[in-house]
Write a protein that binds this DNA or RNA. Structure first.
Length: 464
RNA sequence: GGCGCGGUAGCCAAGUGGUAAGGCAAAGGUCUGCAAAACCUUUAUACGUCGGUUCGACUCCGUCCCGCGCCUCCA
């Protein structure tokens, strides 16, 4: 089952393997830590996490770098306004970001690279870019006219269109509207670094080129991010990097589509702007959020709704119930061959879906079809003990990508031993046909978040 | 205006040139002391519009309408 991804560069689905060895060199654009990340940011970061897990499931090792943009106009403005140092300010949001990622079970990349720790690497790169740059009022710009294939990622044609206009887009003087800043001279009261190319701070794009090349080499296997970064950010990264190394910057470019909220674009003014902590604070399980973000294939815009979140929570619950049943019910010895075959088919269909450009919707369909089949077999007594390992293995395969089956632990819950004792007491009451007492015990446990289920093989319980 | 993505059942959402996966919701049923869980049945004469190609299109081509993204910072 070959692994395929849609490559923004070629505008086609291509088979993927790493260029050099079995290790995938991957760079993904991380957060700008000027505020709490919102659910739209996490759509992209969840996609990246699925990508990691998918690559690993295909037997590849990962060397993945993600940047933390900890210096930019907004950060400087906010830090100054709050009388904080840059570090004080960005530390707050960097830590919040990492907490949020942990809540969503997003794996930590092999390296997180803060821009401010690479200022001198960037200065070196800007110097090396020499003929592709020019200075103006203390700032340094990249001259896109010096890079003939500029526009190849976003499929824009800039030839013939490069001179004339003198636009003051960024409050700096540029020779051409499309030229972009590599180094920005400080304005009054702004934070700056004193360097060989003068005082200032890096432009946004250069950090990614520099850190990617430094840690991963001249040519990346995969570069990924949100679709809004295609132009100008990734286009500019290509220009800088390829002028620096003379080699293709990345083989595969993957971009996640945007997210909408309740059918509308997310915006603070519409009141549909959610951070992860908003949603968790309202009682939505991080797993449900993760599931919803993961369930829509990344190249399709995702309509994030509270109803959808509830549906996601219920869907997860069904899968968890199935797993619990698999682990607690007892079945006759032997193997149901027909079911074993269907398990294998479901597993293959799941992998095929994931490997087909991360078609998570297709993969999920295989999971739910299997769950229905297996539950039916259990109900009709056709399920055999020998089918359990395969079924659990398939669920593990599913969870190795989706990672939603384990419930997020809550503080202050009853211990297992205590629960078992209460269940004993209830079973005794039932035997004595004292249903009133039995129900009372069940209700008490429920009030503490423990759900009891009577099955033909005895009582089982789960945490709410 | 340029570039890119999309419009499939109440909602979310796959998919193929030969007549529509899956999830949620809804209704009915089975099982159960009651629940819970689970299962079964039902729910798109039809895939935005109008044309074209074809023996046949939701799937290809063109038109139009609508939504979204980028073109200035942005996941």
């Amino acid at each position: 089952m070959p692994l395929r991804f849609y490559n923004t560069l070629s505008q086609q689905v291509e088979e993927f393997t790493p260029a050099a060895d079995n290790t995938v060199r991957m760079y993904t654009c991380g957060p700008t830590v000027y505020d709490f990340a919102h659910i739209g940011n996490f759509r992209t970061f969840t996609f990246v996490d699925l990508l990691r897990k998918c690559l690993r499931a295909n037997g590849f090792h990962l060397n993945h770098v993600m940047n933390i943009t900890d210096v930019d106009d907004k950060i400087i403005r906010n830090a100054v306004a709050q009388h904080k140092s840059l570090d004080e300010y960005t530390k707050i949001y960097t830590e919040a970001f990492l907490e949020d990622c942990a809540a969503l079970r997003l794996e930590r990349p092999e390296r997180l690279a803060p821009a401010t720790e690479h200022i001198h690497d960037m200065v070196d790169a800007i110097q090396k870019l020499g003929p592709h740059t020019y200075s103006s009022d203390g700032s340094v710009y990249f001259k896109i006219a010096s890079f003939p294939t500029y526009g190849k990622l976003s499929h824009n044609d800039f030839s013939g269109n490069l001179s004339g206009a003198r636009v003051d887009v960024d409050e700096y003087e540029k020779a051409d509207a499309r030229d972009f800043a590599l180094w920005k001279t400080p304005k009054e009261g702004e934070i700056f670094w004193d360097t060989e190319i003068g005082p200032g701070r890096p432009g946004w794009h250069i950090e990614c080129s520099v850190m990617a090349i430094k840690y991963l080499g001249d040519t990346l296997d995969i570069h990924a991010g949100g679709i809004d970064l295609v132009f100008p950010h990734h286009e500019n990264e290509i220009a800088q990097s390829e002028c620096l190394t003379g080699k293709p910057f990345a083989r595969f470019w993957l971009h996640a589509e945007f997210l909408m909220v309740e059918g509308q674009k997310m915006s603070k003014s519409l009141g549909n702007y959610y951070t992860l902590r908003d949603l968790v604070g309202k009682g939505h399980a991080p797993e449900a959020i993760r599931y919803l973000l993961a369930s829509v294939p990344y190249r399709k815009s995702l309509n994030f709704t509270i109803d959808g979140l509830k549906s996601a929570a219920i869907a997860i619950e069904r899968l968890r119930n199935f797993k619990l049943r698999l682990e607690t019910d007892r079945y006759a010895d032997g193997v149901n061959q027909q079911l074993a075959e269907r398990t294998a088919l479901a597993s293959a269909a799941f992998t095929a879906g994931i490997n087909d450009d991360l078609n998570t919707a297709e993969a999920l369909a295989a999971v739910f079809e299997f769950v229905r089949d297996a539950n039916s077999a259990m109900d009709s007594g056709e399920f055999r003990a020998g089918n359990t390992p395969d079924a659990l293995q398939f669920l593990n395969l599913f969870d190795s990508i989706f990672d939603v089956l384990k419930a997020t632990a809550k503080a202050g819950e009853l211990g297992d031993g205590e629960i078992d004792a209460r269940i004993e007491a209830r079973t005794a009451a039932k035997r004595a046909r004292d249903f009133k007492l039995a129900d009372q015990i069940r209700d008490e446990l429920l009030a503490q978040g423990i759900i009891l289920e009577d099955t033909k093989n005895g009582v089982r319980w789960k945490r709410k």
